[in-house]
Design a protein around this nucleic acid. Structure first.
Length: 264
DNA sequence: GCGACAG
DNA sequence: ATCTTGTCGC
């Protein structure tokens, strides 16, 4: 039987969009924007670490070791064909210790504002597959492309996530020139980080120069069960290049996977 | 009216 | 996301 091609034209049904908005609202209510995990950053990497007696000897809890990254790459011929990849890196060495990919046909097109309905299901599958196998390298925190997707996936997977953006999410009065202006005003002085506060007063995340040479910032947003301050620390420590390694490796390997299967 | 709009 | 040339530098 012939299927209608999935284009955004098929998804103008206001009923469906309203349902999606309802789902997003209910997930938003479950979103936690404070640190909610049982691990700590390695002391030597933690800028704010204080050399107290308690820190030196009595901390026997978990240390952050496994940082995950996910990404999808698409066929240029058929935008509904994609490879989704989950990688896990050792936070100390930034070496990839786990990799899994899945070729999928996505039934939902990309609609700005609703990315998660297209990409979250396959990523959730990869996470659940890894969890079922009880692999010890299951990520303690996950980097996800896109502000909304990071939140959406995090709540569904009940996993701390950090949103990584290569471009600014234009929302609530946030504009490209405004961000550039603020970064330049910051100059060489203190940090290369500016907080992104919209017209409504809500904080959406930060723009950060992750590398000396990069004029173009990356955008870090709070996902779930992690504070913005902690997210920034982790991302900074993962940046060998402009894009943090977990996200970068997921991107590279998902493209490799498409090639491997001869998908163009 | 036109362009922009996470991926 | 993807299409796209060359160029500079390590």
């Amino acid at each position: 039987m012939e299927q209608e091609p999935s284009t955004s034209e098929n998804y103008k049904d206001p009923q469906l969009l309203n349902k999606w908005i309802e789902i997003q609202d209910s997930l938003k209510k479950r979103l936690i924007t404070e640190d909610g995990f049982n691990w700590k950053l390695p002391p030597i990497k933690d800028q704010d670490f204080e050399e107290t007696e308690e820190n030196q000897d009595s901390y026997r809890g978990e240390i952050l070791k496994y940082v995950g990254g996910v990404d999808l790459s698409f066929s240029k011929n058929d935008p509904s064909i994609a490879c989704a990849t989950l990688v896990v890196l050792d936070f100390t060495t930034l070496e990839v210790v786990h990799e899994d990919s899945s070729i999928v046909k996505l039934s939902i097109p990309y609609i700005p504002g609703f990315l998660a309905f297209r990409e979250a299901p396959v990523l959730l599958e990869l996470l659940e597959k890894m969890k079922k196998r009880e692999l010890s390298s299951y990520p303690q925190v996950l980097m996800v492309d896109g502000f909304g997707l990071a939140c959406h996936l995090a709540v569904l997977a009940d996993l701390p996530t950090i949103g990584i953006g290569k471009n600014l999410h234009h929302v609530d009065g946030l504009t490209q020139p405004r961000v550039r202006q603020l970064l330049e005003a910051n100059g060489n002085s203190c940090s290369d980080i500016i907080t992104l506060i919209g017209d409504s007063g809500s904080t959406f995340g930060v723009a950060m120069r992750s590398t000396e040479g990069s004029m173009k910032p990356i955008f870090i947003s709070v996902g779930h069960r992690i504070s913005l301050a902690t997210a920034i620390k982790i991302v900074k420590l993962c940046c060998k290049f402009r894009v943090p390694e977990p996200t970068r490796q997921a991107d590279i390997r998902s493209k490799d996977c498409l090639r491997k299967f001869g998908i163009s």
